[in-house]
Simulated assay, not measured.
Amino acid sequence: MARLLPILFARLTIISALLLFPFLPPSFAGKNGGFVRSISRKDPGIKEEKLSTFRLYWHDVVSGRNPTSVPIIKPQKNSTTAFGMVSIIDDPITEGPELSSKLVGRAQGFYASASQEQIGLLMAMNFAFIEGKYNGSTITVLGRNTVFSKVREMPVIGGTGAFRFARGYVEARTHTVDLNTGDAIVQYTCHVIHY
């Protein structure tokens, strides 16, 4: 009898689960699998898509006592393009080109020199906004930046908060660069489709 109890318990558990299966919530039972539930874009909470365009100024400060860009991997010694260099950034983003203009967010992430032929960076960064209706929201930029090109285009691959489901692109244009210090100000024009 003692050996029979575990077998009976196991069978009762299986039978109970099979009987309850049709009554489980849709997130656990459905055509899409046990952990996926499809929703319609017409459901409450899903708003109409809109296109937002805004201009920001990104300040990459590599000099001084408080740099906002710090190299964490040095480039190859014999490279003319700084190939292999990786820098972590926490760069201020402002409304105007002056560092003293209104701070609207921070560009946080990294860039890496990923080209042996020209100065070409892999940019991976979040624009984390701290101002106005976008406070607490982010957009994520991931792409190639050939820094000596007049205009560089990089994709927006996502976002959070007001920019959930974001997609689009940014155009980067060098505003100023100090060749002695390496400090740079870049104008970013962002075109973002979001809800």
Rank of each mutant, 00 (worst) to 15 (best):
V186T: 05
L99K: 06
R173N: 03
L20S: 13
N145R: 00
V177D: 03
Y134M: 00
F148T: 10
H59N: 09
T189M: 01
S101M: 06
G30I: 02
T146E: 13
G34S: 15
R37I: 13
G143T: 02
F9H: 07
F9T: 10
R11H: 06
D183H: 01
N78A: 13
L4F: 09
T189A: 02
I93L: 15
V62H: 08
A184T: 14
T81N: 05
M154Q: 08
Y188N: 08
L51I: 13
Y169R: 05
Q76C: 08
W58L: 15
E171C: 02
S137E: 04
P67Q: 07
R41E: 15
S149V: 01
T146H: 10
G84H: 05
R164M: 13
I73D: 08
G168P: 03
F165D: 12
L12I: 07
R144T: 05
G34V: 12
A29E: 06
M1K: 08
K47D: 14
F127D: 02
P71H: 02
T176V: 14
V151D: 11
L56V: 12
D90Q: 10
R65A: 13
E171H: 10
Y195R: 09
S69K: 02
P44W: 08
L4C: 07
S79P: 10
F28G: 11
T13V: 11
V170A: 05
P44G: 15
L4G: 01
G168L: 07
G132N: 03
E131D: 15
V70T: 13
L4Y: 12
G120A: 12
Y134D: 07
S115T: 04
V192P: 06
G143P: 00
A10Y: 07
Y134Q: 00
H191Y: 15
G45N: 08
S52D: 15
A172N: 03
S79A: 13
T94C: 04
L51Y: 01
A2V: 11
A17E: 14
Y111L: 01
R106I: 09
P22L: 11
P6M: 12
P71N: 05
S87I: 06
K50V: 11
A17S: 14
A112D: 11
M85I: 03
A107R: 04
V192R: 02
K150I: 04
S40I: 04
N66T: 15
L121R: 01
G64P: 12
L19M: 10
I185R: 00
K42W: 02
I130M: 08
I185S: 01
T174K: 08
L5N: 05
R11F: 12
R37T: 15
